[in-house]
Structures are given as structure tokens and as C-alpha cells.
Design a protein around this nucleic acid. Sequence first.
DNA 1: CGTGTTGGTCAACGCTTGTTGGCAACGTAC
DNA 2: GTACGTTGCCAACAAGCGTTGACCAACACG
Lengths: 197, 197
Amino acid sequence: MPDRPSSGTESPARPRRSDATRAAILDAARDRFAAEGYERATIRAIARDAGIDPSMVMRYYGNKEGLFVAATDIDLRMPDLTAVDRDGLGERLVRHFLDVWEHDERLTGMVRVAVTVEAGAERLRSVFRDQLAPVIAAVCPVPDEAAVRAALVGSQIIGMAMARYVVRIPPATGLSHDEVVAWLAPTVQRYLTAERP
Amino acid sequence: MPDRPSSGTESPARPRRSDATRAAILDAARDRFAAEGYERATIRAIARDAGIDPSMVMRYYGNKEGLFVAATDIDLRMPDLTAVDRDGLGERLVRHFLDVWEHDERLTGMVRVAVTVEAGAERLRSVFRDQLAPVIAAVCPVPDEAAVRAALVGSQIIGMAMARYVVRIPPATGLSHDEVVAWLAPTVQRYLTAERP
DNA sequence: CGTGTTGGTCAACGCTTGTTGGCAACGTAC
DNA sequence: GTACGTTGCCAACAAGCGTTGACCAACACG
């Protein structure tokens, strides 16, 4: 029953005829999870979007949680901060996140799901741990402080994302990119480079 | 059919025998909504917690959304900032929110629901508009800027709440109250009193 | 007393959900 | 050409959901 996507240490795994279907399912799943959260995104709706039968989803991804895990591998495309002027770290990061957030609605979806189901929360924690924290640690003089500084930066970024993209609080949605940068960059800069208070 | 809680312009509405039941339902609903979000918190479970039949919930609150609305009237208990030293506004606010957040798990619940269903998002927006924004406007020299400043403060507060209480990102959960205040107070202070950049 | 209102239970409804197993068509290798 | 793995659809399952209406017990009031 070599039916699931072969994981890991094998040869390039020659393409299957069903690859297109698999991709269509993932695409539809990402959209639905992002737009409606975990519970309201039904397997039936995802299958309908993908133009196939719900049972195919089960065959390829086992169950709903398996589909969710497969559909939400987030890549923040973090820049290399060691190449950035030390005083420009805050602005660089804020601009990067504004860009990423508006071009990948999966992030909104991940937040939505992270708040709802434990598997989603773990996903968000892992993104923090594996993508944000290391990049920040690379520019943090005291390694022990890197995790806390990353969490602080993340708190402000997530908070603004909630205000702008998830809950859509009017004054926050009305800010231009430059205004957001002007307000948030000093905050992030301080979380990164200020002495521990 | 004077069965629903009489709304509005009447005499003090003498207590009914069912007040205890109504309160038990609300209590259970708050807990469930906070812990599990809107969809997973089932009316049946809430009724079971309250020790009554599910149909009572319908009778007293109409439907699930009505129950949700009744169960999530949040009061931030905002302090009067005009009585606070201008340089201490940031610390005062951060401490207040830390306190409120840890003593009322309804806030976590509201965030959870705000992210999931539109009625919840509207609830959170209204808390911003009716409770946070006015208090901040009272200490904001330029009235036009009050809404934006409130949104900025809110973004940092919600972000930290997400990190600490909802998603539970380890470095954020590990911070003491004093550490959170030391890091966040200057941010909030700047959002409140700094010139518009 | 009797009568109407209130507080509450019970059993069921229609519906949707995730999930399963059987079965037909296709492609490929021997 | 025939055997076999793959791809897909179909129909159904059991469970859980929100919601409804009939019905009973206790109280309040004349």
C-alpha cells in the first residue's frame, strides 16, 4: 500500500499520475482552512473545491488532521539579518512581515487555526522556534536572550496582524505600510537591540 | 411569553426563580467558549455543565449565537488614565492588562472566538471602540489621533496575550509580570505620547 | 379550591460531519 | 492478453450537532 506520499530518505520518487490531485487538494485545503478555520473547513467542501470525491482526501492524507498538517507548512522566507545595518533591523523586519502577510493568506489561516486547535498552536510555536528565533539569534549578542527577544518581536508582529488582518480593527486596517513601519519599527528595534531592562 | 430576560426600560424586574439556572448556563457557557472556541463548545456540553437540559438553553437564549452574545459581555475595567502621571501611562496600562487577563479567562475566550466567527470579531471591535479607545482619547492631546494610538496599544497588548495565554509560546510564558512590564511599558508609552512619526 | 404561569425534562427531528468499504475504469508490465 | 496496482466515484455508516414540541411538576394568585 505505497499510497501516501513517500516520506524522507528515498530516491526522488518518480511522479505519480495523482500528483495533480494531491496538489489540488492541498490548494483547496489551504484556502478553506485560511478562510474558515479548522472546524468550519469541511473535508467535503475542500474536496468539492478540488473537484474530487471526499474519500480521496482520506486516502491521500489519512484524516482531517493529517490534511491540516500537510496543508500548513509555513515558510516565512526570513531574510538574513546579519547583512542588515544594525540600526535598520526593526524596519527591515516590519517591512518583511507586512509583505509576507499580505501575499500569503495562509498566515492568517494559521493564526486562525492556532487559536482553535492544539495542533495549530504547535505549528505556530514551531514556526517561532525554527524560523524566527534562529534569525534573531544570529544578530543577538547575548545568545541566552535571543529566545525572549524573538518572542517579544513576535508578540508585536502577531498583534498587528491580528488587528489588521484577522479581527480587522478599523484604525489598524486604515494605516498605510509606511505608517505601520514608522510606528512599529522602533518597537521591534528596541526588542532586538536594547539592553535587557 | 415573557420568558426572555426583560430588556431595557422596565421596573427592576423582580427576581425570578430561574435566575440561578440562567446564571449557571452563562457560567458554563463562558468556560466552554473560552476553553474550546465557538464550534467545539456545544450547547449539550454547556447544559451538562450547568446541570440542566439543553432545551433550557434554547428557551432562555434563543439559539447558540444568542447564548454567545449573552456570555461574552466583556468589561475591561479600564482605569481612569487622567489621574495617572503622564510618564507612567505605559506601565499603568500594561500592568492593568496583565492583571485583567490572568483573572478573567473570558478574555482568552473572546480572542479565541473573535478569530473564528464574525460575531466574535465584532465583539472584540466593540470592546476596542467602547472601552479602550475612549480612555485613551481622554489622555490624547490630539483627538484625531486617539483611534490610531488605541489600535497600536491594542495590537501590542493582544499580541502579548496571544503569545502568553493563547498560543503559549514558551519564552513569552516564562516572563514574570515585572519583565513583561519592563519590556512593554516603553512601547505602550510611546504609542500613547510620542509625536506621530 | 381551581386556573394560569413558570421551570424543567424527554424524546425526537433533520442535518452535517468524518470516515469506510466496495466497485468500476484505467495504465502498465509481463 | 491477462494480471495487478493505481485512481477515482458511489453509497453508506455512526455519531454528533442545533433545535423543536409535547408533556409534567411546582408555584402564584383569584
